[in-house]
Simulated assay, not measured.
Amino acid sequence: METLLLLALAAALVEVSVPGPPPRLTIVSHSFDIGRCQLNVRWNASAESVNHACKEYHSVVWTDGIATDALLSSSTDRTMEVELGKNLGFGVREECGDMRGKWVNVTLQQNGTAGTGAVNIECTWFMEKDVECSWQPGKKAPAGTHYTLSYWHEKMKTREQRCSNYTWSKGSEGTRFGCRFELPSSSGLPKLHLLLQGNTGDIQPVCVFRGDTASYIPEIFDPPSISNLSNVRDGILVEWTRPVNRNNLCYQVEDNKKNPYYTFMDLTKEVIPVEANEQHTFRVRVSQRCDTCPRCWSDWSKEKVWKPKDKPPDKTFKILLCTMIPFIVIVLTIILLIYLKSIRRLILPTIPDPGKFLKLMFEDQNEDLQKQPPEDPLKDEQTHPLTVMEPIGNEN
Score class of each variant (00 low, 15 high):
M1T: 04
E2T: 02
L6N: 11
L9E: 14
L9G: 02
A11T: 04
V16D: 01
V18W: 01
P19A: 09
P19D: 08
G20T: 04
G20E: 02
T26G: 00
H30C: 02
I34H: 07
N40K: 15
R42H: 10
N44I: 07
V50N: 08
N51Y: 07
E56D: 08
H58Y: 15
V60S: 01
V61C: 09
V61K: 09
W62F: 13
T63P: 00
I66W: 08
I66Q: 12
D69N: 05
L71E: 12
S74T: 07
T76M: 03
T79S: 15
M80N: 02
E83M: 08
G89H: 08
F90W: 13
V92T: 04
E95N: 06
D98Y: 06
K102Y: 00
K102T: 01
V104Q: 00
N105Q: 04
V106F: 03
L108K: 08
Q110W: 08
G112K: 10
T116N: 06
V119E: 10
C123T: 06
K129G: 10
D130Y: 15
C133G: 07
C133H: 05
G138Y: 07
G138M: 09
T148W: 07
Y151L: 13
H153M: 00
K155G: 15
T158A: 09
R162N: 06
R162T: 08
S169Q: 14
S169E: 14
K170H: 12
G171K: 06
G171W: 08
S172I: 00
E173V: 11
E182R: 12
L183R: 02
K191G: 15
Q197Y: 06
V206R: 12
F209C: 01
R210F: 15
T213D: 13
T213R: 13
I217V: 15
S225T: 14
N228D: 10
N231D: 11
G235W: 01
E239F: 03
W240N: 06
R242M: 10
R242I: 04
V244Q: 15
V244L: 09
N245R: 12
N245W: 11
R246P: 03
N247K: 11
L249I: 05
L249Y: 07
C250D: 08
N256V: 01
F264V: 15
L267S: 02
I272N: 01
P273G: 02
T281L: 02
R283V: 11
V284E: 13
R285S: 12
S287T: 13
S287K: 11
C290F: 06
C293F: 01
K304G: 04
K309F: 03
K311A: 11
L320W: 07
T323I: 15
I325E: 05
I325G: 03
V329W: 03
V329C: 14
I334E: 06
L336S: 10
L340Y: 09
I347Q: 09
L348C: 12
L348S: 12
I351D: 01
P352V: 12
G355M: 13
K356P: 00
K359V: 05
L360N: 10
M361T: 12
E363N: 07
N366I: 15
E367T: 14
D368M: 05
L369I: 14
Q370F: 09
Q370G: 03
P374T: 12
P374H: 10
E381H: 10
E381N: 05
Q382I: 12
T383H: 06
P385I: 12
E390W: 04
P391Y: 04
I392C: 04
G393V: 14
N394H: 14
